[in-house]
C-alpha cells in the first residue's frame, strides 16, 4: 500500500427487495496488490464485484475504482479495468488472433496498436504455431493464458479475475500465477474473486465474505495464525461455522 490505494469501498450495500446481498462492506485495495475476494456461493461476492466493475448500481454507500466513482463514472471505470472469467473469456469459434482483434476493437484500440499488441502477445506466450487455430481446439491452460493476456490489451490499471484457475492442472495453474505476479510486479492491481480456498493462498491479502458481510480481511499468513490452522480452507471452515 506504499503506492496508495486504487480501490476504495465505503459502506457499500446492495439490496434486492428485502434481501440484502451485500451488507455495508468497506475495504481498500492497494496499487500492485494481489487481492483475494473470497466467499461461498451466494455470499454476495459476485454482487459486490459487479458493483465494482460498474455494471450494477449500489443501493447505498460508495466505491471508487481507479479514481472513478462507480455510480456516476461507470463508463470510465470500465475503461480502466480488465476482466477475465473462467466461464466466459474467449470465443471458441474464433482463432487466437481473431479474438485479440475483436477484444482490442471493443476497447477502442487503433488498428495498428492491435496489430503490434497481438504480435507481442503471441511472441510472449510463444503461440506462433497456434495463433491461427480456433481457440476451442486449445488445451484449457493455454486458453486461460491467452484470456488473461487479452484482458490486459487495453493496459488497464486493475484486472478482475473470476475463479481463474479452477479445474486446471497444478503446473499450468502455477504458470498462471506466475503471470499474475508478473503483472502485479509491474504495478497492476489484481482482484481475484473465488470460492477455491487454495487460490486464496496465493493472494497478498484476502477478504472473506459470509452472508453479505466481510468477516475477515488480512494476509493469509495472519489469518491462519489468528485461527490457529494450517490452510485458508480451514480458516474458511471456522469462519463459516462461527456464523452459523
Amino acid at each position: 500500500m506504499k503506492n496508495g490505494n486504487i480501490i476504495h469501498v465505503k459502506n457499500l450495500t446492495k439490496t434486492f427487495g428485502d434481501f440484502t446481498a451485500v451488507d455495508n462492506i468497506s475495504f481498500q485495495v492497494g496499487k500492485g496488490e494481489v487481492f483475494g475476494f473470497l466467499g461461498a456461493n451466494g455470499a454476495g461476492k459476485t454482487t459486490a464485484m459487479k458493483m465494482l466493475i460498474g455494471i450494477s448500481k449500489p443501493s447505498s454507500g460508495e466505491a471508487q475504482v481507479a479514481g472513478f466513482d462507480v455510480k456516476s463514472q461507470a463508463e470510465k471505470v470500465k475503461r480502466s479495468i480488465g476482466y477475465m472469467s473462467q466461464r466466459f473469456s474467449l470465443y471458441n469459434d474464433l482463432t487466437i488472433r481473431e479474438n485479440i482483434t475483436f477484444f482490442g476493437g471493443i476497447y477502442g484500440l487503433k488498428k495498428s496498436d492491435i496489430k503490434t499488441k497481438s504480435q507481442n502477445l503471441i511472441d510472449e506466450l510463444d503461440l506462433h504455431d497456434e495463433a491461427d487455430k480456433l481457440v476451442g481446439s486449445l488445451p484449457l491452460g493455454w486458453k486461460q493464458k491467452v484470456a488473461f493476456s487479452v484482458s490486459l490489451l487495453h493496459d488497464p490499471q486493475i484486472i478482475f479475475l473470476d475463479e481463474p484457475t479452477g479445474g486446471v492442472d497444478p503446473i499450468t495453474r502455477r504458470k498462471f500465477w506466475e503471470m499474475i505476479y508478473r503483472e502485479a510486479h509491474k504495478g497492476k492491481t489484481i482482484f481475484v474473486t473465488t470460492h477455491y480456498m487454495d487460490e486464496a493462498e496465493y493472494c497478498d491479502r484476502v477478504s472473506i465474505m459470509v452472508a453479505g458481510k466481510i468477516e475477515a480481511l488480512d494476509t493469509p499468513k495472519n489469518l491462519k495464525e489468528k485461527y490457529k490452522v494450517e490452510s485458508m480452507n480451514q480458516v474458511f471452515l471456522k469462519l463459516a461455522r462461527n456464523i452459523e
Binding site: Y181, D198, P220
Partner: peptide
C-alpha cells in the same frame, strides 16, 4: 519479501530441480 523476484531467481538457480509457487 518479493514473490515475483523470488520466482525468477529460483528459476535460474543452478541447483534447482523444481520451483513452484505454493500459496504464500
Amino acid at each position: 519479501a518479493e514473490t515475483y523476484r523470488l520466482i525468477q531467481d529460483l528459476k535460474v538457480f543452478t541447483q534447482t530441480h523444481s520451483a513452484y509457487p505454493f500459496g504464500e
